[in-house]
């Protein structure tokens, strides 16, 4: 593990008066895409909550709906998406807010970092301008010059060397890791309460990955943010998260604090993810070992357990009814009729 140096944030320390109320509360979130004849049930009944200052890892294989879920939280989905349920940010319902009101909160109360740093920055705009833009959208009285000065400061916070020079540069002049730091700087510009990192390190090499993750965690502490870490990698969840939610085919199939989850895996799918040892000969996103099976069909609403086809513990009732996510033990919820007995997991 890299050593973590504590850096004093330029502004704002964790709010000592922080209430215990969660920063984000999601209940029964569903996202359905309808485009012409095609319907995709991308997210089905997701319920989550992220307390202040805590990190929630959302883990799942490719196509499980992690990105759709996070974009639904940010209000960034295209008009083809129908979103239902409830999303409360800092106690206020934001689902169904008019775009203009939602806009005020994006980048200010919640921010997001995307997977591919080579594509998520505007190639024709200076780094400084891209950071300053976030500031100037939410703080109208800040002048261009002041905003750029703050951009330099932010670059320093995310440990970009020679920040005065970097603000004048364009994305293509930076390495992938540096670009992701710039993305983080943009996200932090207005000190959001919630930061969503959608596979923020997947595209980076291993060393850089660790550096960026460490940086994120440091900053989380400095700024007192809550964080949603989206990944397909159980290792990241184990190292950096407080809580873990495992997604499969649009469903959260298991949810628990990190120690509880790794101590007592109950959902067969989670077990399968954990058994998968990362291997170099496999592309990062490919799912791991699996019994031969078709990918889950998202074009129909779920009437049975979506994992049934690949599940080693499948029984008749799995094919009859869709198992709901229920909190079976304290803070440990799973969606399975036949969970793994406790003994087996204590290894």
């Amino acid at each position: 593990m890299t050593t973590r140096t504590t850096v004093v944030a330029s502004e704002g320390a964790p709010d000592p008066m922080a209430t215990t109320a969660p920063v984000l509360e999601v209940e029964h979130l569903r996202v359905v895409f309808r485009q012409g004849e095609k319907t995709t049930y991308a997210v089905n009944d997701v319920s989550l909550s992220v307390p202040l200052g805590r990190t929630l890892a959302v883990i799942g294989e490719s196509g499980s709906g992690k990105s759709v879920m996070s974009r639904a939280l940010m209000g960034l989905l295209p008009t083809t998406a129908t979103i239902t349920g409830s999303v409360r940010l800092l106690g206020q319902e934001i689902l169904g807010l008019p775009e203009n009101d939602l806009r005020q909160r994006r980048g200010k109360d919640m921010a997001m970092i995307f997977q591919d740093p080579t594509r998520s920055l505007n190639p024709t705009m200076k780094i400084g301008t891209q950071i300053a833009e976030n500031i100037r959208i939410h703080e109208k009285d800040v002048s261009r010059k002041e905003a750029i000065a703050r951009a330099v400061e932010l670059l320093r916070v995310v440990r970009v060397p020679a920040p005065d020079r970097r603000v004048e540069e364009y994305p293509h002049q930076l390495s992938g890791g540096m670009r992701q730091r710039v993305m983080i700087a943009i996200a932090l510009a207005c000190q959001p309460k919630l930061l969503i990192a959608d596979e923020a390190t997947t595209a980076l090499d291993v060393t850089t990955q660790a550096q960026v993750m460490d940086l994120l965690l440091d900053l989380q502490q400095q700024f007192g943010m809550s964080m949603i870490l989206i990944s397909h990698d159980m290792g990241i969840a184990a190292t950096y998260a407080d809580d873990v939610a495992v997604m499969y085919a649009g469903d959260v199939v298991e949810r628990a604090p990190v120690t509880e989850l790794f101590g007592h895996v109950r959902m067969p799918y989670t077990r399968m993810l954990l058994d998968a040892v990362p291997r170099l000969d496999r592309p990062a996103h490919a799912l791991i070992p699996v019994t031969a099976a078709r990918p889950p069909d998202l074009s129909k609403a779920a009437t049975s357990c979506r994992f049934a086809a690949r599940c080693p513990r499948v029984q008749d009732d799995c094919l009859q009814t869709h198992p709901p996510l229920e909190e079976h033990e304290d803070k440990h919820a799973w969606a399975c009729f036949h969970p793994i007995p406790l003994e087996r997991t204590s290894a």
């Binding site: 980048g107 995307f114 505007n122």
Partner: peptide, 24 residues
């Protein structure tokens, strides 16, 4: 993706179109 970034900053529809997409 850079459009998503811009929208995630809270930039309005016109700003995203003119300042970001049109430029490209």
């Amino acid at each position: 993706d850079y459009v998503q970034t811009a929208r995630a900053k809270g930039a309005g529809g016109w700003a995203v179109l003119i300042r970001h997409i049109l430029r490209n």
